[in-house]
């Protein structure tokens, strides 16, 4: 089951194990320059608000309601990263944008695949910042309206049909978890009234600038995951106007630019996952064209303030205990 708690999606599988719980939230962040250079990881500036889509059943487009799930606001060209919270119980989690897998680019399936691996493993993977386009490199998740050709969905399928984000989580089999724990302990001890009759253009995620982030191989093996039990969620991305019209709430303000942030000497981040092996990119993902590059080809400027910067102040975070502090000092914008 999935519940919405403090703007986090909380996945629980009490039918598998009482400890089978993880959470996923979506962090506001700077948009890194889309200039072909590789940047460190930008900070978290606080979570995006999430709302049950069903709460706006009278106003929301039918297509949105059909999908269920939650609603999240993003400004056009705004960036985000996904934060995973899992204490000890391992999970396999698939993330897709416009129903195209963020790791492989393959079309959505409701099961796990290993060749190539199309899922992340928690708690080893603390974050996902973008689409895996090379071994150890992702292109940042950047919101763009569907229909303009920038989204990964449109680049891979030629269609602008789904948009948003899709998530499915599978818990580890209970007996594998118990064995793992034994092994570890042996080792260590109201509506605003604007009815949207027709579906507005959806927002999708497009590939932005490059940053250094490894997606880790599954060390447990496909057999470790209990694929009889899964919970999935469609995250519809609303632009600022849609969000205001549906919820009556103002969306979060736009984050500072990467230049302003860097000029202030504030920290960027690297993550060291120890001996874990990183996945390589797939052929499909290698062919993605970034938003800025595609804009040049179309003689458009989709990303304002995209000049290169010097991200000099880089903090390296390590796997143990460091997943909560990838934040701008002072608690965010």
């Amino acid at each position: 089951m999935i519940t919405l708690e403090h703007d986090s999606l909380v996945f629980r599988f009490p039918e598998v194990h009482e400890a089978a719980r993880c959470s996923i939230d979506f962090q506001r962040t700077l948009r890194i320059p889309d200039d072909g250079l590789d940047y460190p990881l930008p900070p978290g500036l606080g979570g995006f608000p999430l709302r049950h889509l069903d709460d706006y059943a009278r106003q929301a487009p039918r297509d949105w309601l059909r999908r269920g799930g939650v609603l999240m606001p993003m400004h056009q060209a705004e960036a985000m990263w996904i934060s995973f919270g899992a204490e000890s119980y391992p999970f396999a989690v698939k993330i897709a944008a416009g129903k195209a897998c963020a790791l492989t680019g393959d079309a959505w399936t409701n099961h796990l695949n290993t060749d190539p691996q199309d899922y992340l493993v928690l708690p080893e993977q603390p974050w996902l910042d973008g689409f895996c386009v090379a071994k150890g490199i992702v292109r940042q998740f950047v919101a763009m309206p569907l229909g303009e050709g920038y989204s990964v969905e449109e680049q891979l399928t030629g269609a602008a049909e789904h948009g948003g984000l899709q998530i499915i989580a599978y818990p580890m089999k209970a007996e594998r978890y118990e064995a793992l724990i034994d092994e570890q302990s042996a080792e260590s001890g109201p509506a605003y009234g604007v009815v949207m009759d027709s579906a507005p253009p959806d927002m999708g995620l497009a590939p932005g600038g490059r940053m250094r982030q490894e997606i880790y191989e599954d060390e447990y093996g496909l057999d470790a995951w209990d694929q009889r039990y899964a919970s999935r969620c469609f995250v519809t991305i609303a632009n600022s106007m849609q969000w205001l019209a549906l919820t009556g709430e103002r969306p979060p303000t736009e984050p500072p630019t990467a230049r302003d942030y860097s000029d202030a000497g504030l920290p960027w981040f690297d993550f060291y996952g120890g001996d874990l092996e990183a996945l390589a990119e797939t052929e499909r993902m290698r062919g993605l064209v970034s938003v800025a590059r595609l804009g040049e080809q179309k003689a458009e400027t989709p990303l304002p303030e995209n000049e290169s910067i010097d991200a000099a102040n880089v903090l390296t975070l390590r796997a143990a205990g460091a997943t909560r502090v990838r934040e701008m000092p002072g608690g965010g914008a």
Binding site: M1, I2, T3, L4, L9, R12, P14, E18, H52, L53, D54, L65, R66, R67, G68, G69, V70, K99, H162, Q166, S231, R232, C233, F234
Partner: peptide
């Protein structure tokens, strides 16, 4: 018990997609 309480908690509805 926790599982009984979770039964009355509002779930995020999964739809058709």
């Amino acid at each position: 018990p926790d599982h009984a309480i979770l039964h009355i908690v509002r779930e995020v509805r999964d739809g058709d997609w």
